[in-house]
């Protein structure tokens, strides 16, 4: 945990429209190249936290530092070259092909009037391959299954070549095969020193890929630390409010709803 932190959040406060604060006095440091899972029940501000890191939402109090510089000192374009987002879902009204869709991830490197060039096409092809979608290259996005769409969004974020990748519930609604593909992508990113932060309400996914886990409860960090120290019977039972059992298999913690 002594590696330099790439994302540093201090004393964040955030609430939607004067309602009860979603985040309240939230602080967190994420180290370079780590994989962090944000775990917590629905409605505890997991997505809000991702959007604050992205800069889409600004906290009413507190500071966000990316690579030791204040988030506000970056331009929109610099930020988009630094941080990528895989949203939970996305409405695509037109029949873009998978490749055209993935190619949109190159936008941070193109000026307003520029068209993608050879290098961008190559980066998009590579990203497509990394997500295992090369056979679907020409399929229209609206015809894909939910899991394939999720992979297409991941591929688009990979084409963006960010230093930090934020993923909002990347494995929700995915079958085991596609979950496995996402997990492998996360592992490969961590090998390539890309810092990833993902939200999930499934402790098992966190257990499999995350180096550290942030447990969120009622807008506060309930606890944060290495994955094995976080995923315990006491912690999980407390934040989810039901009795949860944790067993160990193959060196990983498996969480069961007792």
């Amino acid at each position: 945990m002594n590696s330099p932190s790439i994302i540093s959040l201090k004393d964040l406060e955030f609430g939607y429209n004067d309602q009860k604060a979603v985040l309240n006095g939230f602080s967190l440091d994420i180290s370079l190249g780590s994989t962090t899972a944000i775990l917590g029940p629905n409605g505890t501000g997991k997505t809000t936290l991702l959007y604050i890191i992205l800069g889409l939402l600004s906290p009413s109090k507190g500071s966000v530092h990316i690579l030791d510089k204040s988030q506000t000192s970056y331009s929109r374009r610099q930020m988009s070259q630094l941080i990528g987002l895989v949203p939970q879902s996305e409405y695509v009204p037109f029949d873009f092909s998978v490749f055209e869709y993935v190619l949109l991830g190159r936008a941070p490197y193109l000026s307003t009037l520029q068209l993608p060039c050879e290098d961008d096409l190559y980066a998009a092809s590579t990203a497509l391959k990394a997500a295992g979608l090369q056979q679907m290259r020409n399929r229209p996005i609206p015809q894909l299954s939910g899991g394939e769409r999720q992979l297409a969004m991941v591929a688009r974020a990979l084409a963006q070549q960010p230093r930090i990748l934020l993923l909002d519930e990347p494995t929700a609604h995915l079958d085991l095969g596609n979950q496995d593909r996402i997990i492998n992508i996360l592992r490969r990113l961590s090998r390539d020193d890309v810092t990833t932060v993902f939200t999930t309400h499934n402790p098992n996914i966190a257990s499999i890929v995350a180096d550290s886990v942030v447990l969120l409860n009622q807008g506060r960090v309930f606890s944060t630390g290495s994955t094995s120290s976080m995923l315990t019977h006491e912690n999980l039972s407390k934040i989810y409010g039901v009795d949860i059992e944790v067993v160990k298999a193959n060196g990983k913690h498996i969480v069961l709803n007792a």
Partner: peptide, 16 residues
Amino acid sequence: NLLSLDDKTAFSLGIS
């Protein structure tokens, strides 16, 4: 194409 996507996606891709 970018402007036809969700606002949050367009934002994350650096589009004003």
